Amino acid sequence: MFWLLLLLLAWAFAGTAGVRLCLAALRDAATDRDSAAVGDARELTLYEAAFLSGGPRRVADVTLVSMARQRRLLLAHTGWATVVDPHGRDDMERSVIGAIGPDGQSRIAPVRTRAARADAVRRLADRLVRSGLAVSDAAAGRTVGAAVRQVRVAALAVAVLAVAALLLPVQADTSRLMVGLWFLLPFTLSLSCLAVARFEVHPYSPWASPAGQRLLGALPRQRGGADRSLLTSVALRGIRAVGEPELRAAFAHRDAPPHRR
């Protein structure tokens, strides 16, 4: 009857994850009611949209692409960034120029990392948290997105425990089919929680609060020129939204840096 202990463990995984998801959804609903007026009072800037969609690294990407489109920064397909205009127009651009360094040239990968950790990005994050649009670091582990990830892990754990139970010897009066059916119950619970989360509280983000997600949903409907549309797509979906092959290659380059000419 050792399989019963495994079944209890499976129920513990599934039940704990399901309860955590419900509590996270309730907290998000309460937060959404408290900050309902935020979504009607303002529009997101590109930097704010980038942070809420993809975090600090997405902000750095939007800044790099914006400067490259304005020909103030050269992003080579070999993975190097070269400063053309050393005068940044805002704190984010100055952070990127500072991340490239005094030589005016650097590999793009470390520039993205250093720019994402800059003070300007931290100040942006603090402003979004204070306005109720972003999730604070202290609450990041209690969001719906984190709870959904725990439910996925619980579903996997239940499946592993079920396989382990089926491999154990069972008593003569217990069939393996019955053992499998018992484990099917907590597995179904986990899948049901994922399905409900998908249709009721999706999209969920590790960065944006419910109010921030609502503003992100309205962002694609805002009008703008071609460059604005491209930068909005990058803010929402990342570098994969860039259609220019050379620019995408610049961000995708992971090989050893080539020799400078």
Rank of each mutant, 00 (worst) to 15 (best):
L215G: 09
A116E: 14
R221G: 15
F199Y: 15
A138H: 03
A109Q: 09
S190E: 05
A208C: 08
S209T: 10
A140D: 09
L161R: 05
D137V: 02
L184S: 14
F187Y: 15
V158C: 06
L236S: 03
S131K: 01
A134E: 00
L156W: 14
L191T: 12
P186N: 08
L181Y: 10
A162R: 09
V135A: 00
L128N: 04
A115K: 09
R228F: 14
A138Q: 08
R117H: 13
L189E: 05
R228P: 01
A139K: 01
A155M: 07
L161P: 09
R228L: 08
L133A: 01
G238M: 07
S192G: 13
R237V: 04
V158Y: 09
L177W: 12
T143Q: 02
A164F: 13
R112N: 00
A146M: 04
A218M: 07
D103W: 13
T143S: 09
A118H: 14
G217Y: 06
S136E: 01
A154N: 10
S131F: 00
L189N: 05
L191G: 00
L219Y: 10
L166F: 08
G145M: 05
V144M: 02
M178W: 15
L215Y: 05
L216T: 12
P210V: 07
A197L: 07
W207F: 15
Q105Y: 03
